[in-house]
Amino acid sequence: MTDTTDVKDSVVVDDYRVDLAVFHGPLDLLLYLIRKEEVDIYDIPIARITNQYLKYIELMQTLNLEVAGEFVLMAATLIRIKARWLLPRDENETEEADPREELIQALMEYKKFKEAGEILKEKAILEERNFVPESPVEKIHGRVDEYSDITLFDLISAFKDVLEAKREESFHQVDTEDVTIEQRMEFILKALSGREYATFPQLFSDIPRRIVAVVTFIALLELTRARRVVLAQSKPFAQLRVYRGERYSAEKSAVDLISHKQQDEVTN
């Protein structure tokens, strides 16, 4: 299609190749070009910037870099603006909007947040020099994992690890599993009776079949909801631990738990 050596020649001059990965999207590339060409962002020479932009896109292809769809979309937008810009103005339409207007708006908007991102970065660097002593109270209680702000992501990724570990032991045998959520709830509560906490993988360690692991996971969610167990970790991304919750009781039967559930629903 186009002579690629031509492209290379024109661009290598700027020694641009090193910077390719630095561009975070078409707007970022455009801002770079505007700065490099020293043109006014409010009065972009659209033909010149479009040509420059297309050269970079070609270069990215030449280097076998995957050109994201956004870059291609912006190329189309630029070409459209350029075409409208070059077309003779319609005499009947006295007040035709500048076809570049929308693009300029988008660029200015993006630039503000790019700057804000830079400011945040500086703040994070400053904050790195502020050391916060660990609270002595946590030490007294001997329980460091007060970090209980656990999201669904943490839970699912922990469960994913457990399931993946079980994958190899699958064999083709169709069995009717008579495992129930209630049974697994009792299993979890019993597991916690003898110790302070159980780690997430520990709860699943003796389970040979995935279906049982899945039911155990659901049981764990139920118990957490009923506040019979509490999930905590020492810090973000640390291993999940299961503790006895405020409503913990190993003796209470599963039927009791269901009534708790109903109570919850009434009070909520």
Partner: peptide, 26 residues
């Protein structure tokens, strides 16, 4: 990440589409 955080911090609550609109990328 920093740019996205900046958008969320200033515009919250904000949807993914609104973030993508500002940054021009997924």
């Amino acid at each position: 990440s920093l740019e996205t955080l900046a958008i969320i911090a200033y515009r919250q609550p904000v949807t993914k589409a609104e973030i993508e609109h500002v940054r021009g990328v997924a």
